[in-house]
Amino acid sequence: MDSPPDTPNPDRREFFKKASAVVLGGIAAAVPIGAGVPLLLDPLGRRDTAGAAVHVVNIDSLPVDGTPRKFTILASRKDAWNRYDDAPIGAVYLRRLEGGKVQALNVSCPHAGCFVDYASASRTFLCPCHNSLFHLDGTLAQKSSPSPRGMDSLEVEVRKGSEVWVKFQNFQAGHATKMARA
């Protein structure tokens, strides 16, 4: 690209060359990056498959005195390419209430997601990680608790008079309000 002597404006020509070099080089560099970013952000476009209700136990196996019992929830689950039938997707505390009703609490702590223990001596829930304390009904039992909210209750239904069906769901930890995890 030698400039012929009669070029009217060599400066302009030079600028044009520089600009095109930068633009073209920029495009060339941007494409491979541009192709990767969508893949990186791919999880944002995926929803947690909110599960349908599952049959967990029959009400007879829950103590009449209202002591909570822990159950693993088995459901079909998708993890990227894998599909699992009957994989453990979480756990719940089930507690028999007055009038044939049942209460279901997600065992995972709303503070940072540790599994909450049941302390039978004090009949409370105690989180082993940072000692959040909850009443039997799941509400906060401390004035200032590490956990920003009480334990997460789940939709539960007693079908045919005895089958306990729970709609299992996880919620975003660390917030005062209970938000479904997308």
Binding site: K17, K18, A21, L24, G25, A28, V31
Partner: peptide, 27 residues
């Protein structure tokens, strides 16, 4: 036969065009 030039911008421009051509071929 011709006078020397600096790498920038003449050769850079040619290089950029060539890279873009490679990329276009790949796409």
């Amino acid at each position: 036969r011709r006078p020397d030039v600096a790498f920038w911008p003449d050769q850079v421009l040619k290089d950029s065009v060539a890279c873009l051509a490679v990329l276009a071929t790949i796409l």
